[in-house]
């Protein structure tokens, strides 16, 4: 075991892991994040806490993580390289770890253009792969990125994202291999709607034996409506929503679309349970956190293991 991370323990035990996600509030009262996290208690192994998601200012990920940690739950500190240079990121990692946060997800982050501060400078001192490497060296070598020794190095269980649906497809396995080479421990993928394409990607992952070197959590996001399906298909970069999915959503009456979206998600989970190399699910119910417990239960992923 590399870390004290509960997520690592669940994954190492060979059982399917379940994670979900909470977006911190756009204000300085923590009630919302506590409320959202409470809904997930007992249903997931760890909770991602986003870092200025979609480049909109929110309460910092690490401070929101502390609230979740204090509830006895396991937060995953998300960190984007967009907003901080390597000094700031390392100091946040030290601070978060001091508060018992031992799992993190390394991302480059959405471009500032998409957020509420499009006039901000994107930092991008590091990219996500370099961030993974930095956190690994902090843990395994006890070294800061600049080379100096760390007194009491943080032992982070290191995650990263993978998008099997972005272009060029032929690079998607290779880029995962680069993350593995950098030292990533687990991967959470982009939301999966095109299951065939995801399986094709997994084939490539297995061909290179990457599934033996990294845990992969398949990303699942239930659609609330046909409108959301169309939005995801047309407006969200790097998202692959096949026409059949949109068609299926629109084939049921409006009031039944939410249930249809959940059904699609559950079917995807069921199918992916049988795919070698898929070690769990990352269920992102965007502004729909209350549905996660039901989904986890209906997917047969309860009870969550005690490790």
């Amino acid at each position: 075991m590399k870390t004290e991370s509960v997520l690592e323990k669940v994954l190492a035990s060979g059982q399917m892991a379940v994670t979900s996600e909470c977006g911190p509030p756009r204000g300085s009262v923590p009630d919302k994040i506590i409320e959202k996290a409470n809904l997930l208690k007992g249903y997931v192994d760890a909770i991602n806490v986003t870092d200025n998601q979609t480049a909109m200012v929110r309460m910092s990920s690490w401070s929101s993580c502390i609230f979740i940690k204090q509830m006895g739950l396991n937060p995953i500190l998300q960190m984007v390289t967009r907003d901080r240079n390597r000094l700031a990121m390392q100091s946040d990692i030290l601070g978060a770890y001091a508060h018992g946060i031992n799992t993190m997800l390394c991302l480059s982050g959405d471009h500032p253009k998409f957020g509420d501060h499009p006039m901000a400078a994107g930092v991008y001192d590091l990219d996500s792969i370099q961030l993974v490497r930095m956190v690994k060296d902090m843990r395994d070598e006890g070294k800061f990125q600049g080379g100096a020794d760390i007194v009491n190095p943080p032992k982070m269980f290191i995650g990263a994202a993978a998008n099997p649906f972005a272009d060029p497809f032929e690079l998607r396995v290779a880029r995962l291999a680069k993350k593995v080479k950098a030292g990533v421990d687990f991967i959470q993928t982009q939301c999966i709607y095109n299951v065939d394409k995801f399986e094709k990607w997994m084939e490539g992952v297995r061909e290179r034996g990457l599934h033996k070197q990294v845990y992969i959590l398949a990303g699942i996001t239930p659609m609330k409506s046909v409108g959301m399906a169309k939005y995801m298909k047309n407006k969200v970069p790097g998202m692959d929503v096949p026409d059949e999915v949109v068609k299926r959503m629109s084939s049921v009456p409006k009031e039944k679309q939410a249930e249809e979206g959940i059904k699609i998600a559950l079917e995807t989970i069921e199918r992916l349970k049988g795919v070698e190399g898929v070690n769990g699910f990352h269920i992102m119910a965007i502004e729909w956190e209350e549905k996660v417990p039901e989904m986890v239960e209906r997917a047969g992923l309860l009870p969550r293991p005690q490790v």
Binding site: R82, H111, G122, Y124, D127, N163, D167, P168, P237
Partner: peptide
């Protein structure tokens, strides 16, 4: 756009930038 040294990110689509 993100000066990634190890790209492409997940926003590369049809050869274009997100």
């Amino acid at each position: 756009s993100k000066q990634l040294m190890n790209g492409p990110c997940g926003g590369s689509s049809g050869g274009k930038c997100e």
